[in-house]
Design a protein around this nucleic acid. Sequence first.
DNA 1: CGGGTTTCGTTGGGTTCCCCAACAATAACC
DNA 2: GGTTATTGTTGGGGAACCCAACGAAACCCG
Lengths: 147, 147
Amino acid sequence: MADTPYAPSRIRALPSWLLGRAAARGHRLVADALAAEGMRMMHHAVLSAVGELGPVSQAELGRTLRIDPKDMVAIVNDLQRDGLVTRTPDPHDRRKNAVEISADGRRRLRRTQQLGDEANAELTADLTPAEREQLVALLTRIALPEE
Amino acid sequence: MADTPYAPSRIRALPSWLLGRAAARGHRLVADALAAEGMRMMHHAVLSAVGELGPVSQAELGRTLRIDPKDMVAIVNDLQRDGLVTRTPDPHDRRKNAVEISADGRRRLRRTQQLGDEANAELTADLTPAEREQLVALLTRIALPEE
DNA sequence: CGGGTTTCGTTGGGTTCCCCAACAATAACC
DNA sequence: GGTTATTGTTGGGGAACCCAACGAAACCCG
């Protein structure tokens, strides 16, 4: 029971385990970077998606980002409270909220996007650009559950 | 706001995001498979590590598997209650528990290992064996935080 | 057009994994 | 031999995920 920094351990060779560890590190890097701007990961993701999709319902945001509707309510609440998005009733469908990014939101998004990109660069710092492309391509093929 | 199955969405191209999605799917597949044998993921990981490392302290288990000591207590409690591991005081260091796999534990481990491998095969079903090797190699290089 | 089905936002309850802080007992260091 | 570090344990808490229900509104289709 000496030091044994880390045994090979059958578990640690499984894709599912490695994915879990790598995802945890990625999450930590990105979350820490965004925290410098007072932003949380899911909030940034939603803000980014709203910025791209234009006025969009919460349900569709949840679908594209795979965020639980329960959590989406809280996230949009926060973003709205901070003046980063607006939430107005959709005139065409009174069930929906049309969520739209504000000018402040766009300014904030520019900075958080930068931070997120930097964190991802750090995450893949040991990889060549080609290897990072490979990784992204492989992940894309196993990440999708069904859809 | 039509159907728009899934927009490209800048976020979804980031390694950190893809890792999160892929890890979530892997976790779901493995956890569901192990549930058929009444085993949970972390429990299986600990049981597997104990099986490989022989008598080992909880602290070292936590180090190799990156499991919080708090959670480790609960996991070893469960495994011990189910008769899969024994927890005896280490004669050389009275602070430590020597955790060791039992005969029942080894039998159970064989089945859960099989289930875990199958779930990982399903996770990487769209990849060729060579691609799976690539993925594992790339993940190994970005998964380690420091050490 | 009218009645069953689906969607939307929201609220609720629940699990898992992660991280930090403390503590007494014990060991290791110097 | 006194300080420092480690071990197991307890505690509190956060983030992400998942499932179920609900009223309101829209859709489908006979």
